[in-house]
Structures are given as C-alpha cells and as structure tokens.
Design a protein around this nucleic acid. Structure first.
Length: 260
DNA sequence: ATGGTCGCCATGCGA
C-alpha cells in the first residue's frame, strides 16, 4: 500500500501534472494540499476516468485538501472537530487493507508567516487542537497515517542552511515542540525510519533558483502509528516533478506499507 | 538591507 502527500499549490494549474504523476505512480491514496479552488470546481471526472475515487474539502483562493484513492473512503471527516476554522485544512477517511481499516488523514498545517504574526499564534493553536484530536483518533484507529504539509522542518538537518535560516517560522522551537508532541502520541516520521541517501528536502522556494541550488526544507511528512510503522518498508521523496515546467514548489512524498 | 516568484484574481496578500 502506497500513501503519498503532495502540496500542489493550485489544483487548477497542476491537474495535468498530478494526472501524469498518478499514471506513472499508481498509489493507493494521494493526499493533496493547497487546491485553491471551491468545492464546485473540483475536477472529479478527471480522477474518475483514471479509476480513482476522491474526497475533497475546498474553498476559494486559499487552502483546500483532497484524498484521491483506489478504494472509496469511508467515515470521511472534514476539519478538526474540536477547532472551529473556516480554513479548509484537514480531511480524513478510512481505507481497507489486509490488516484491517487504515485511517488516512490529509493535513495542510498553517504556515505561520512570521514569529510576530497572528497567523503564528493560530498555527500553534491549530497544532494543539490537532494533537488533542489525534490522541482520540489513535484510540479508535490503531492503523493511522497522517500525511501532509506540516510547515515545520523538524530538525536542523531538514534545513539547507540552518544558520542562515536562524530562528524563524517553520523551524522555531515552539513549532518543533508541536511536531515532537505529535510523535509523543506514538507517531513515527516515516522518512526517518530509514537510512536515507541524498537530499531530504520536500520544498524549495520559487525565488533565487532555490531548487537548482537545492536550497530547500523538509516540511512535508508522513507520520505513522506504531502498527503502520511496523509495516513501512520505504519513504521516498520524488524530486522529479519539481523540475517540471510550472512546477509546484513542493515534491511528493510516498510511504510504502507492506502487508504480509 | 532589500527583494526575489508564484497563484489567486485584478490589488495586494499569502506562501
């Protein structure tokens, strides 16, 4: 079973690239973030024609998340039930596996903008609510995966130049503590389960030739519960689509699960 | 020290 997360930065613009990628990489569940389109403009037919099901939570201009899947999702949930929020950032559904139901959560976590911003306060509140909800969700679903754009680089090795980046949004101690609190629930950073060779980054700024210089950050993650950790055989970052014409600024990240 | 690039949609704003 393959689970992928990809922040596409506008599904309108990126739909052809997403379809091309899915053709070459037929995963079981693809979590998309930053759709930037209202629900009524979601391109359901395009995914259906490829044999996929879809659930989505969109809004005009900003945010928006979707789950594209081989099997239809059950018990679909939009948003954090414990945090009133007009921004569409979270979508969860349950999918079958040989071990039983797997809960997959697609998350577009707030960016925070800057340490002084109200958006930063909102980010930390949002993560606190996510933590509290995940604690309950893990009791209900022992096989749980939460994938998405966390807008947090968990450690200095996830930042191209930690000294230059300094203490700023995406790396600040309170944000990293929020990420560690999720791991303390019994979740595991799939990428760090394996000896990795090559660059760890999943996002590169559009400006200053950041991708060419590999001046990136690792902010897109797949977190797995204990039961899924024991099934995980790989976690891969696909840099290829970032080299496309009109690319998203994020790369897709795939966790592979093997059920015996 | 400043602004660089995208995508939204028409103007600055968010990332």
């Amino acid at each position: 079973m393959k689970l992928t997360t990809w922040n596409v930065n506008s599904l309108n613009v990126r739909l052809p690239q997403v379809l091309d990628w899915l053709k070459a990489n037929p995963v079981d569940v693809l979590c998309l973030q930053e759709l930037k389109l209202p629900d009524e403009r979601f391109p359901l037919e395009a995914f259906q024609e490829m044999g996929y099901h879809a659930h989505w939570a969109g809004q005009k201009t900003y945010n928006g998340v979707a789950l594209i899947s081989r099997e239809p999702g059950a018990d679909v949930q939009r948003n954090l039930p414990n945090y009133e929020d007009p921004q569409q950032r979270l979508l969860a559904a349950t999918y079958p596996s040989p071990d039983g139901p797997v809960r997959v959560i697609c998350a577009y976590c707030p960016n925070g903008q800057s340490l002084e911003s109200e958006k930063y306060t909102y980010k930390l509140e949002w993560f606190a609510a996510l933590h509290d909800w995940l604690e309950k969700e893990l009791q209900q679903y022992p096989r749980l995966a939460i994938l998405g754009d966390y807008n947090i680089a968990p450690a200095d090795q996830d930042v191209y130049d930690p000294v230059k980046w300094g203490v700023d949004v995406l790396v600040s101690p309170p944000e990293r503590a929020a990420f560690e609190r999720l791991l303390a629930l019994g979740l595991h950073d799939a990428y760090r389960l394996f000896e990795q060779s090559g660059s760890p980054f999943t996002w590169w700024d559009y400006r200053r030739f950041a991708f060419r210089r590999d001046a990136g950050l690792r902010i897109d993650h797949a977190l797995l519960s204990d039961e899924l950790k024991s099934r995980c055989t790989a976690c891969d970052i696909d840099r290829e689509p970032r080299a496309n014409e009109q690319p998203s600024d994020h790369a897709p990240v795939t966790a592979t699960l093997s059920f015996s």
